[in-house]
Design a protein around this nucleic acid. Structure first.
Length: 803
RNA sequence: GCGGAUGUGGCGGAACUGGCAGACGCGCCAGAUUUAGGAUCUGGUACUUCGUGUAUGAAGGUUCGAAUCCUUUCAUCCGCACCA
């Protein structure tokens, strides 16, 4: 027997799989289908990460198993290739992003193939391919036609370093998520998608899908639904009303002032009556310069300015109350104005204390002069006229009903989720298919003229003005209006990175279609995605965005299912061997290439699956990897002890059935670590016995195949089995044979194990009693004591209680 | 602050519905083999004052029996965050 040569064997089988189109998904509608999806990588310059390996190997195992179970399997891969790192690299090195992207895709493809993934390489997608982004633009146009895409003049977050407008998702703590620089507020006209209109559908759809509970929870929190009321406050001596959103309509009698966001438009509307406009303008300017970070960090120190000359009227008590401008109220949530109830809201309380405003208790139970009393669950209303004596839960609907009857307000639902800022001021993205005509206004590009291709240019550095580099290319910007033919200008913003990934799973079902984003019959067969696996970091943005697009496409009849993904799971992070997140600066990054070169793809795959609980982060360990390599070499040597015989030998029969059951179930539950552990145990048993029948070995190879396909395929051939493993069938087990007739049962005295007995699994109690009391050690413990009680659970335990 | 988790040997982690805690792997120890190193093989490995002892972050409780259920508490991680 030759020593196992992983390099030779792995290359051999990778070539055979490729030459025979072994993993091609066929549009054979007569077969049951399985569509397994993994998040396609961003082809960065650093190449594949071991994190990718963990994310992909999990569904790879399922996909290989499904083929053996007779499914027609679609297991595709592609590249989400638009993005800043490529563009920045291109700027730095002077190479065109197209060239950089192509190089990176090549490297990624080679790496993915060297791991032996069973992707269908005929269906590869590249989001930067005009044939692909043509349909990304097409979907945008459908959204525009249905009123879901709109342009709005807002304050945006501009990163001075990346020279790019950031979405709310791309910056944290007031810093740019990519470069860490400070972010400033800037006024700009940008495109938005009305994802908020789908908030309710996105929430409801969660009831019908099988996502990990924490994923559903994160999505719910992100959407942030809250039920409350909109209440109108009159401005004294004016026609204007100040609208507020509150979840606590019951506290209306406790409102002693109002606060509006610095950006609130009513300031401009009432400017002529505001006596301290200078002061307010100054405050507004300061607030704009504050980063979100400062606004949050300084939360304890409330700032604000009273609007002098204008007051509001509490609609229910008729009292005149002051209005303040303060940056603790955000224009982006609710109506940008609040009714302040200092007695029962901590922020309002802080503000009231600082500005010496009255605090009126309306819910009994606390000392509101000392601190805000915010316990909603209990408490009765006081100082509240017709609400007095009611409990909070009752008082809220009562008040809302009153408000509705008197046209002072109405029940409203509010969402935290903001509309999707759908724009980037960069070169390397999908052009937004819109032109601006002085005569016709905003004009969508006709569908027949798609794609609007990115112009091939030599410079793509962003500008200082917040405009896209495309704005500097007059021959591209200047065009004619599709409606009237007069001169017009193109939209120069591009789409955000999330665009291309919002529908890629549809394209995999029919990647070369030139007439539609995908053929309806093909989508009807393949959709929905049966199982989607990816990172936790994508479960809010990407997963919500793509569900939004899919739900919209369903509503306009373009796709056949309401939801895109039936099931969604997520893997934990692979940490460096120091337990820290892998990063270049820490020098703890593991490169899959090195591992494959030294130990082979099968060892890498096996170890990554064995490393620990799939959903939890796990530190990399070179020794752990070696252990898995040792396991595979022990598997290789099984060929030395194999003997003829298709049957399972009596000594191993029950082990075989147990292992088939365990491995089958554990793979499905993503408990890869325990599945592999049970295969290791079975392997140990083979060596304990000293021989293994061909039947036993081929079952073992089938079970291990999804994790370590190369070595098992080679052994399969060596022992003379027919065909390749993916053409074989997944082993069956006999439930009866997974249960032993006679087991070793623990006998306890007062709950502590004091002896063991050999007993039939269904033995009667008196039989168990006799065996237990015949045990020497048990006798010793019972001797001289009084037996109070005996508990016998057949197949589990015999417990004797003594005194 | 709100929401979600997680806490088990030297390490990664097992443990069905409450029923022998520590599967499997790593590491470590001893032995075999080897010129040596490495590799491989065999055996051992929670702690222990060796007790009828202790032990699943800590403290209580329910139970014949608790890692698992309940109460309190501590720690760590993740997500959201002045959300009205």
């Amino acid at each position: 027997m030759e020593k196992y040569n992983h390099e030779k064997v792995e290359k051999k089988w990778q070539k055979i799989w490729e030459d025979t189109d072994a993993f091609k998904a066929e549009d054979d509608y007569s077969k049951p289908k399985f569509y397994g999806l993994v998040e396609f990588p961003y082809p960065s310059g650093v190449g594949l990460h071991v994190g990718h390996v963990r994310a992909y190997t999990s569904l790879e195992v399922i996909a290989r198993k499904r083929r053996m179970q007779g499914y027609n399997v679609l297991f595709p891969i592609g590249f989400d290739a638009y993005g800043l790192p490529t563009e920045n690299y291109a700027i730095k090195t002077g190479q065109h992003p197209r060239k950089v992207t192509d190089q990176n895709i090549k490297v990624f493809t080679q790496q993915l193939k060297s791991i032996g993934y069973s992707f269908d390489w005929d269906r590869v997608i590249d989001t930067t391919d005009p044939e692909y982004y043509k349909w990304t633009q097409w979907i945008f146009l459908q959204m525009y036609k249905h009123g879901l895409a709109y342009k709005d003049h807002t304050y945006v977050n501009f990163c001075t370093h990346c020279k790019v407008v950031l979405s709310n998702e791309d910056f944290r703590d007031g810093k740019c998520d990519r470069c860490g620089s400070d972010v400033i507020q800037m006024e700009k006209d940008v495109w938005f998608l009305k994802i908020r209109e789908y908030a309710e559908k996105l929430l409801k759809g969660l009831d019908d899908v099988d996502y990990l509970p924490r994923i559903k929870t994160e999505q719910k929190n992100w959407i942030g639904k809250s039920v409350g009321a909109e209440i109108n406050f009159n401005i004294k001596d004016h026609d204007q009303k100040l609208k507020v959103f509150t979840t606590r309509a019951d506290t209306l009698f406790g409102v002693t002032f109002m606060v509006i966001a610095p950006e609130h438009p009513i300031i401009e509307e009432l400017a002529s009556d505001i006596q301290n406009m200078d002061e307010i303008a100054k405050y507004k300017k300061e607030a704009q310069h504050k980063t979100e970070f400062e606004r949050v960090q300084l939360m304890k120190d409330k700032t604000g300015v009273q609007i002098k000359g204008v007051t509001a009227i509490n609609p229910i008590s008729g009292k005149e109350i002051p209005i303040f401008v303060a940056d603790y109220v955000m224009m982006g949530y609710g109506t940008g104005a609040i009714m302040a109830v200092p007695a029962h809201d901590t922020r309002d309380w802080d503000f009231a204390k600082k500005f010496n405003l009255p605090i009126i208790e309306v819910i009994k139970g606390g000392n509101v002069q000392e601190e805000a009393y915010t316990d909603v669950a209990s408490g009765q209303l006081v100082n509240s006229d017709f609400l007095n004596g009611l409990e909070v839960k009752k008082a809220i609907p009562t008040m809302i009903q009153y408000l509705e009857e008197h046209h002072l307000g109405k029940k409203t639902i509010n969402y935290k989720m903001k509309n999707w800022a759908f724009n980037r001021q960069r070169y390397w993205g999908e052009p937004i298919p819109i032109v601006y005509c002085d005569h016709c206004g905003i004009v969508p590009i006709p569908e027949k003229d798609l794609p609007v291709e990115l112009p091939k240019v030599t410079h793509y550095e962003p500008t200082d003005t917040g405009e896209s580099p495309l704005a500097d290319i007059p021959e591209w910007v200047n065009t004619t209006c599709p409606i009237c033919g007069r001169p017009a200008k193109r939209e120069t913003d591009t789409m955000p990175q999330w665009a291309g990934s919002s529908w890629y799973f549809l394209r995999y079902t029919d990647p070369h279609n030139t007439k539609a984003l995908a053929d309806m019959d093909k989508m009807k067969y393949w959709l929905p995605v049966d199982w989607y696996n990816g990172g936790m970091e994508h479960v809010t943005r990407h997963l919500l965005y793509s569900r939004f697009w899919h739900q919209f496409l369903y509503d306009i009849g373009v796709v056949p299912t309401k939801e895109p993904y039936k099931k969604r799971t997520a893997q934990g992070l692979i940490l460096g061997s120091d337990g820290e997140k892998m990063s270049k600066s820490k020098g703890n990054v593991v490169n899959p290439n090195d591992i494959i070169a030294e130990y082979g793809a099968d060892a890498l795959r096996t170890y990554i699956m064995f490393i620990g609980d799939y959903e939890k982060p796990a530190p990399w360990s070179e020794n752990g990897l070696k252990g898995c390599n040792r396991f595979l070499e022990r598997v290789w040597r099984l060929q030395e002890i194999v003997k003829d015989g298709e049957e399972y030998s009596p000594r191993l029969e029950s082990d075989m059935h147990k292992t088939i059951k365990k491995v089958s179930e554990d793979y499905e539950a993503m408990k890869y670590n325990t599945a592999i552990a049970s295969l290791m145990t079975l392997l140990n048993h083979f060596y304990d016995v000293g021989t293994v029948t061909k039947g036993e070995l081929s079952t073992f190879l089938k079970l291990l195949y999804p994790v370590a396909p190369h070595i098992t395929e080679e052994l399969w051939q060596i022992i003379g089995e027919d065909g390749m493993l993916h053409q074989s069938s997944w082993p069956e087990f006999d439930e009866d044979k997974t249960v032993d007739d006679v087991i070793e049962m623990a006998v306890q005295i007062n709950g502590k194990v004091r002896g063991k007995i050999q007993i039939a699994i269904d033995a009667a109690k008196d039989k168990a009693h006799n065996l237990a009391f015949a045990n020497e050690n048990i006798k010793k413990f019972v001797d001289g004591k009084k037996v109070v009680k005996e508990i016998y659970i057949p197949g589990k335990i015999y417990n004797i209680v003594v005194k």
